[in-house]
Computed example of a mutant assay.
Amino acid sequence: MSRQSIGETLAARLYAAETAIDLALIETAMLAAMLPAARADAYLSAVTGQRAFDGAAGSLSALSAARSQMVQTHTALAAIARKLGLDALAVGPIDKPGDTPPVGGGGGDGPGARPDMVNETLRDTVNKILPKEAGLC
Rank of each mutant, 00 (worst) to 15 (best):
G112F: 09
L86H: 08
A12F: 03
G106K: 02
A17N: 03
S61H: 09
L44H: 04
Q69P: 07
Q50D: 12
A78L: 09
T19P: 00
R3C: 07
T28H: 00
A79Q: 12
E8Q: 11
S45P: 11
P97W: 01
G104E: 04
R67H: 15
S59Q: 14
A38G: 08
T75F: 12
A56N: 05
R39M: 01
I94N: 04
A90H: 09
G135H: 11
G108F: 06
F53D: 11
R67Y: 14
A17R: 06
L63W: 10
V118I: 14
D41Y: 13
L86V: 11
G92T: 03
G104I: 04
L10P: 00
G98V: 02
A79K: 13
G106F: 09
I94D: 01
A29T: 15
L136W: 11
A65D: 12
P36R: 05
G7Y: 07
G106H: 03
P97A: 01
T100H: 03
V118A: 10
R3D: 14
I80P: 07
P111C: 01
A12C: 09
G110W: 00
L63T: 07
G92L: 01
T28E: 09
I94V: 12
T9V: 11
A57W: 06
D109K: 07
A65K: 15
R67W: 13
P115T: 04
Q72C: 11
T121R: 13
D124H: 07
R13S: 08
K83Y: 08
A79W: 02
T100P: 00
A56P: 10
D41C: 05
L23Y: 05
A52S: 10
G58H: 10
I94F: 02
A52L: 14
Q50C: 08
G106Y: 05
L86T: 09
R51T: 15
A29C: 06
S45N: 06
